[in-house]
Amino acid sequence: MKWSRKIPKLTVVGAGPGDTDLITLKGIKALQSADVVLFDALVNTDLLEYASEAEQIFVGKRKGCYAYSQDQINELIVSRAGSHGHVVRLKGGDPFVFGRGAEEMEYASKYGVETSFVPGISSSLAVPGYQNIPLTKRGSSESFWVITGTTKDHKISGDVALAARSTATVVILMGMSKLGEIVSLFKQEGKQDLPVAIIQNGTTPQEKVGVGTVSTIESIVNEQNLTNPAIIVLGEVVKHRQQILELQHKINVEPSFVAAS
């Protein structure tokens, strides 16, 4: 292998949840200085225009089909850092929220590659927010859980059952394949009427939203053909979305300006 004279460097960058405007300025600067970009499936590829001179390699997965295994990605980071210099690992959302960013930085560091991290806006926060669903709201929710729906063993996370017992807002990523098990756990806690929102392709033009309750959400998913990539939000805060829609409708029907007192 021909090694570059540049210092081997890895920057793990959060691309945000999908809307290209939601990447940070620091993330854009990292892309502009990249020699190689390794990007995932949930990254909006329009962001690659910021690294038009860099080698661009897709390393993501779709529906269980891997372009590269995680071990191969780790090795690719080290080899490209050695041969090219600055590698940007571009990941959807925030790479430290179920993104394996920490694992890749740890691996690269073992081989003498300088590492740095650029946070991204997590889909767990931004996607509900785009639909006017706050994760906390005075009088409705004092805290929130963010949980992976599916563990590395392809089982539902045990934390879902714990979260179902709390009064917190619960956000579940990668949980659509476990939706039946999730609603069952909440029903066991007597929360059949708890509001639920499922948001597919959040913050993008392809966004789809289904809103119901623990008892109705599975039928709504079937009716609207909701599927991955999507997040599941369970909690009283989901009602805020409808409240805002009703207020906006009222303003549009009866235009008026009322000054805040």
Rank of each mutant, 00 (worst) to 15 (best):
residue 183 V to W: 05
residue 244 I to K: 14
residue 23 I to W: 11
residue 1 M to A: 10
residue 38 L to N: 02
residue 259 A to E: 15
residue 119 P to T: 04
residue 83 S to N: 10
residue 200 Q to W: 04
residue 42 L to H: 07
residue 225 N to K: 11
residue 168 A to Q: 09
residue 14 G to R: 02
residue 116 S to Q: 06
residue 116 S to R: 06
residue 95 P to G: 00
residue 182 I to M: 07
residue 85 G to C: 12
residue 2 K to V: 11
residue 108 A to R: 00
residue 109 S to M: 04
residue 156 I to F: 03
residue 154 H to Q: 10
residue 79 S to L: 11
residue 50 Y to K: 10
residue 185 L to T: 05
residue 29 K to A: 14
residue 171 V to K: 00
residue 139 G to Q: 10
residue 45 T to F: 12
residue 82 G to A: 05
residue 86 H to M: 08
residue 158 G to K: 13
residue 6 K to Q: 13
residue 239 K to Q: 15
residue 51 A to N: 06
residue 30 A to H: 09
residue 111 Y to E: 01
residue 173 L to F: 14
residue 213 T to H: 06
residue 88 V to I: 12
residue 137 K to E: 05
residue 142 E to G: 15
residue 232 I to S: 09
residue 165 R to W: 01
residue 128 P to K: 05
residue 2 K to A: 09
residue 151 T to F: 11
residue 128 P to S: 12
residue 176 M to L: 15
residue 93 G to F: 07
residue 107 Y to M: 00
residue 72 Q to R: 15
residue 91 K to A: 04
residue 141 S to D: 11
residue 38 L to K: 02
residue 18 G to M: 08
residue 113 V to H: 01
residue 259 A to Y: 13
residue 59 V to F: 08
residue 35 D to W: 02
residue 247 L to E: 13
residue 220 I to H: 00
residue 10 L to D: 09
residue 130 Y to L: 07
residue 115 T to S: 03
residue 144 F to C: 10
residue 93 G to I: 07
residue 67 A to S: 15
residue 218 E to M: 13
residue 33 S to R: 15
residue 67 A to Y: 08
residue 188 Q to M: 11
residue 174 M to R: 04
residue 205 P to S: 02
